[in-house]
Amino acid sequence: MRNFLAIYQREVKSYFSSPIAYVVIGLFLILAGIFFYLIISNFMQMCMRVDMMAQQYRMAPQKMNVNLMAIRPIMHNLSLFALFFLPLVTMRLYSDEKRTGTIELLMTSPVTNLQAILGKFFAAATLYLVMLGGTFLYIIFLFLYGNPEVGPIFTAYLGLLLLGLCYIAFGVFFSTLTDNQIIAAVSTFVFILFFWAIGWVSGFVSPSLGETLSSFSLIEHFDDFAKGVLDTKHIVYYISFIFMGLFLSFVSIESTRWRGR
């Protein structure tokens, strides 16, 4: 535990004592803010049009659901932005240690590889939590000017968290494979994108294969969270995905010793 904390604290400090954390968090929030504005404006226009139509036909105005029509697309947007940003957060975790040789210190200290991997994983997760925490600000505005339901927002954030941890777990893994940060980031991005889009082919293949493929898709599992549905099958899927990433990282680091690179 002490070793885990030492690694974790060092990584978090390293994020926040360099520009990385501020650039990533800042740009993430700017991008999320722009899209929040666009989606909400769009939603407002729709509300106004519905109102006008109701007046025209002298009907009671139709109720518009802010959770379904605004928050859900916002959450989908955030899940995509996280995909752009998290590989940049995780790329240095092991690559940089390999490039500068500090990996030799780490691997000749009485720290197990599991402690080191978990320390790094949770450090990146902490940065991600701060990123997500910043987006609460936008949601607060919705509560000020409307009355969204809390439940779906909670499940959506839970979904975002689990999804992001999947990105991070594999980000750690790809970072153990190379001493080049760019390669680590690009491989993470492509790998995650592949698992993101794997369900899209389901329309072109046989129904059973299509269903299997979309059950592997990262984003298919996210949609229920965004809608406010909490289903253990999605949680199990994400947790398995995270474990897989961490397990592969562990195997990769252990085998680094044997390969000697």
Partner: peptide, 29 residues
Amino acid sequence: RKRIGYLPENPPLYQDMRVRDYLEFVAKI
């Protein structure tokens, strides 16, 4: 590992840390 001190060919330094913080970290691990 508890009983060895190792200085590799390239000193294993975290470039963005301060000297004291770095040594505290090493002492910790």
